[in-house]
Design a protein around this nucleic acid. Structure first.
Length: 493
RNA sequence: GGCGCGUUAUCCAAGAGGCUAGGAGCCGGUCUGCAAAACCGUUAACGUCGGUUCGAAUCCGACACGCGCCUCCA
């Protein structure tokens, strides 16, 4: 099965055929750097990270461009508030963005251009648009004339008349048509500016993406991504600018990720119901957040809540626990990942062998179907169950069972490179989760160990009453004990 | 007002005409001094009303409810 992607332009899943065989050009709208990123940005980042990773995994040579919008009204406002210049603000939040995305384990895009480094490209496109009659200068501004571009609104499936009926359109007296949008804004006193044929000013928001994508990917390229809220007006305007200037198709496949909701409502600054990535990572592990994002299809809305994050963590712990158990078995033992004789396996072993054989085909099928990571995770969990069953049954480790286990371990690494998971040594990851939980409990690990020692002594003396008291006391504080032949260990519930 | 999306068991969530999704949980069992963890088994669903079909969560229509975009937004 070939890769199929949902294209906003057609409203359907289409078979993905790149412009140039084996190569993919992909542009994703980054952020306007005027504040810390919230979970919505994390989702967009992770979604397109997975798409990037999967395309590479599928053998494509991918050029992935993700921009920084480092000049904009919001950045200027912020700079004025703080009594500093726009560059200081932009650089501060570019650094913060990079830190956040690195924590979330995002692979670096091929290029991360800044709008202010592409002013000359922006000016060239505007000049071409003016020359072709798609744009006009007006009192130091330059506007795109939407009525000159018949395909306008083809992405969002609207039409100009209906849009105006909706009314909330500002009629500026500098514009010929109320829907015309700014390509270039004449600078007001005190604002940063660049020279242009229309006087000193700065670019409008939409034009920078047209300029940077053309610079690195050419006039026509394969994939353009972003959040659903960018469909109109941002992406619609990009199409108008690029196709108006170049006279050819701009983007072949438009991909849009769904929102992060809080209580079924969109997370947004105006509602005040947003969480920054930094806040969330104080409480949850980055892979937990990533797993949470992967637990719903990328186009669906996803509801952000402590309960859902907790569930994501439990689910991820299930996989990591299995991997840690595998590592325990494999540790220090020589093994080959080649399976020799299947007939020697028990029924449980044969079932696992089947899961192992089907693993990559099923994983690829899921991801080929519009990057259905949620379904792909189902494949991992089924394999976890089979693996647990096999380990529970296997008393004696033979070279054959060892190689089967090694094979399973390798498959999780392979899936992990696509999903951006399992980058940490399982035992270390589990320890980290435990430590984070301990931090929320009013007992130190030393105190817990002391109580466990006391309980072990009581139990050795067959004083189970005292032993159970200690266990109940710890349980009340959220500490679970595990008795085994090797002794007692503990974890935080 | 225009355009679009969604409604799957206790919760989260895939699936898109006939094939056990998955996770968390509930309830049994193995194990254990008793537990826990782990494992095994089990349970349960497709918003409502019609239609198409041998067969519908899946296709079509109506309705209800929820949400998004139309303004800067990922």
């Amino acid at each position: 099965m070939a890769l199929r992607v949902y294209n906003t332009l057609s409203g359907e899943k289409e078979i993905f055929v790149p412009l140039i065989p084996d190569k993919v050009g992909m542009y994703v709208c980054g952020v306007t750097v005027y504040d810390y990123c919230h979970i919505g940005h994390a989702r967009a980042g992770v979604v397109f990270d997975i798409i990037f990773r999967y395309l590479k995994y599928s053998g494509y040579d991918v050029t992935y461009v993700r921009n920084y919008t480092d000049i904009d009204d919001k950045i200027i406002n912020r700079a004025n508030q703080e009594g500093t210049d726009y560059r200081t603000i932009a650089d501060r939040y570019i650094q913060a963005f990079d830190e956040d995305m690195a924590l979330l384990g995002l692979a670096k895009p091929t290029v991360e251009p800044k709008a202010t480094d592409h002013i000359s490209g922006i000016v060239s496109i505007i000049e071409a648009l003016v020359a072709k009659g798609h744009a006009y200068a007006s009192e130091g501004d330059v506007y795109f004339a939407v009525e000159t571009f018949p395909d306008y609104l083809k992405l969002s499936g609207r039409n100009l008349e209906e849009m105006q009926a909706g009314a909330r359109v500002e009629v500026g007296d500098r514009k010929r048509h109320p829907m015309d949008f700014a390509l270039w804004k004449g600078s007001k006193p005190g604002e940063p500016w660049w020279q242009s044929p229309w006087g000193n000013g700065r670019p409008g928001w939409h034009i920078e993406c047209s300029a940077m994508s053309m610079e690195f990917l050419g006039k026509t390229f394969d994939i353009h991504g972003g959040g659903k809220d960018l469909v109109f007006p941002h992406h619609e305007n990009e199409i108008a600018q690029s196709e108006g200037a170049n006279g050819c198709q701009f983007v072949r496949y438009w991909l849009h990720n769904g929102f992060v909701n809080i209580n079924a409502e969109k997370m947004s600054k105006s509602l005040g119901n947003f969480f920054t990535i930094r806040e969330v990572l104080k409480k949850y592990d980055p892979e937990t957040l990533r797993f949470f994002i992967l637990s719903a299809h990328y186009r669906s809305p996803i509801d952000f809540s402590d309960h859902n994050l907790d569930e994501a963590q439990s689910a991820l712990e299930r996989i990591y626990s299995c991997l840690a158990a595998l590592d325990d078995i494999l540790n220090g033992k020589p093994h080959s990942a080649e399976i020799a004789v299947i007939e020697n396996l028990s029924q449980v072993g044969q079932e696992l062998q089947e899961k192992v054989d089907q693993f990559i085909p099923r994983f690829v099928d899921a991801m080929d179907d519009d990057f259905n990571a949620t379904q792909a995770l189902g494949v991992l969990f089924e394999t976890v169950r089979s693996t647990n069953r096999f380990m529970a049954e296997t008393k004696e480790i033979t070279p054959l069972s060892l190689s089967l286990i090694a094979h399973v371990r390798h498959l999780f690494v392979e899936a992990g490179t696509v999903l951006g998971l399992f980058t940490t040594t399982p035992a270390v990851w589990l320890e980290g989760i435990k430590a984070a939980k301990v931090g929320q409990i009013d007992l130190t690990p030393d105190e817990i160990e002391q109580l466990i020692t006391e309980r072990t002594e009581a139990r050795a003396a067959r004083n189970f009453k005292r032993g159970d008291e200690i266990r109940d006391l710890l349980m009340a504080k959220g500490i679970q004990l595990f008795d085994s032949a090797q002794g007692t260990t503990w974890d935080v519930k």
